[in-house]
Simulated scan of single mutants.
Amino acid sequence: MSQNKASRFLGAGLTQVILAGYTILALFPIALIIINSFKSRGAIFDNPLALPTSETFSLIGFQKVLRESHFTLYFGNSLTVTITSLVLILLFGAMAAWALSEYKFKGSRILALFFAFGIMVPIRLGTVSILKLMVSLSLVNTLTALVLVYVAQGLPLAIMILSEFMQQIPKELKEAARCDGVGEFKIFFQVILPLIRPAVATVAVFTMVPIWNDLWFPLILAPGEATQTVTLGVQQFIGQYVTNWNAVLASLTLAVLPVLVMYVFFSRQLIRGITAGAVK
């Protein structure tokens, strides 16, 4: 018994050390960006790992970002695209997952395989075709083009995750609601969705980060001044010969805040969703 306890203790300790190391490795670049965004240009290059002091503290990067660029416009564009895409992905993904997991019809397996195929094939492989389609629809340099692409990109993963959680809901619960005369829409919105909130939060976090950080499709589909996103707007401070590192780090600091805020609000649901998915 003592040997088993010792081995379990060592295993748990090793796991904690590995997780702590991974956490430090993941958070170190973010902390480095935030720390240096509040320092002068000379202090950034002199000692990038040092914390800001009374001599090195500077807000010139934030001043340049807010004064010399349309950062609020870029931030608003990113926020609009991300929120709209998330709402559509979660709504359509949950409805499709409900249909695939609850109703058995001819071709349901083929349809599920089709959505799974969407996870395996990167959407960027179809960039040329997507660009031609957006040109024919006159959607180039519009936020609508980005929303359509991101919804198509996020739906397969959302459907697969949500359908797995929906299959774990007891059938007796749904049958009892039907016996009470509850319609299918009410069952879906009032019974099913509240029970899969951890899965919804997991999908939301995993979907938001790639959309918010994406540079590829904004650069191709919406490079105009009025439709640029935060990730694309940061590029104007990066030049071939001279790079304004104060502005770059300040804009990156402002850009990372929504992701951190969302994780703080949904962290508990996210952990529940991940652990539940691991057990299943």
Score class of each variant (00 low, 15 high):
Ser251Asn: 01
Leu219Gln: 06
Gln153Gly: 14
Phe189Ile: 12
Leu59Cys: 01
Pro156Val: 13
Val209His: 02
Thr72Ser: 03
Val230Ile: 13
Arg67Asp: 11
Asn77Met: 05
Tyr263Cys: 06
Ala152Ile: 11
Glu184Asn: 02
Ala94Phe: 04
Ser58Thr: 04
Asn213Ile: 08
Tyr263Asn: 06
Leu193Ala: 09
Phe92Cys: 14
Ile123Arg: 01
Ile159Asp: 08
Leu66Asp: 09
Val209Asn: 04
Arg41Leu: 15
Thr229Glu: 10
Phe28Asn: 00
Gln167Gly: 14
Leu221Ser: 02
Phe265Ser: 09
Thr207Val: 05
Leu195Gln: 12
Ile196Thr: 04
Ala255Thr: 15
Asn47Asp: 13
Trp216Phe: 15
Gly183Asn: 09
Ala50Leu: 02
Thr202Phe: 09
Leu131Asn: 09
Leu143Tyr: 06
Arg197Ile: 13
Pro170His: 09
Asn244Ile: 08
Arg109Ser: 13
Leu143Asn: 14
Val256Pro: 00
Glu184His: 02
Phe62Pro: 00
Ile187Pro: 05
Val182Gly: 11
Gln190Val: 06
Asn141Glu: 13
Gln240Phe: 11
Ala6Thr: 06
Ile34Gln: 00
Leu125Arg: 04
Met120Val: 15
Ser129Ile: 11
Thr144Lys: 08
Glu68Arg: 00
Ser37Val: 09
Ala112Gly: 10
Leu162Glu: 12
Ile35Cys: 03
Arg197Phe: 07
Lys171Thr: 13
Ile44Ala: 07
Lys64Asn: 10
Ile30Tyr: 03
Arg268Thr: 10
Ile192Gly: 07
Ser40Gln: 06
Gln63His: 04
Leu27Met: 05
Ile161Asn: 02
Lys106Tyr: 12
Asp180Pro: 10
Ile159Tyr: 02
Trp212Asp: 07
Leu86Pro: 01
Arg272Ile: 06
Glu55Met: 03
Met95Lys: 00
Met134Glu: 09
Gly11Glu: 10
Val248Ile: 09
Gly13Leu: 08
Phe62Tyr: 14
Ile192His: 07
Met166Pro: 05
Leu91Lys: 06
Gly11Ile: 08
Ser78Trp: 03
Gln168Asp: 10
Met208Gln: 03
Ile159Cys: 06
Phe92Met: 13
Gln153Cys: 10
Ala6Val: 05
Arg109Ile: 12
Val81Pro: 02
Ala276Lys: 03
Ile238Trp: 04
Arg268Cys: 03
Pro122Glu: 08
Phe237Pro: 11
Gln236Phe: 06
Phe75Met: 07
Gly126Ile: 11
Glu175Trp: 03
Ser267Arg: 03
Val242Trp: 02
Ser129Leu: 09
Leu73Gln: 12
Phe71Arg: 01
Pro218Ser: 05
Pro29Ala: 08
Glu184Pro: 02
Ser101Thr: 11
Ile238Asn: 06
Ser138Tyr: 04
Tyr74Ile: 02
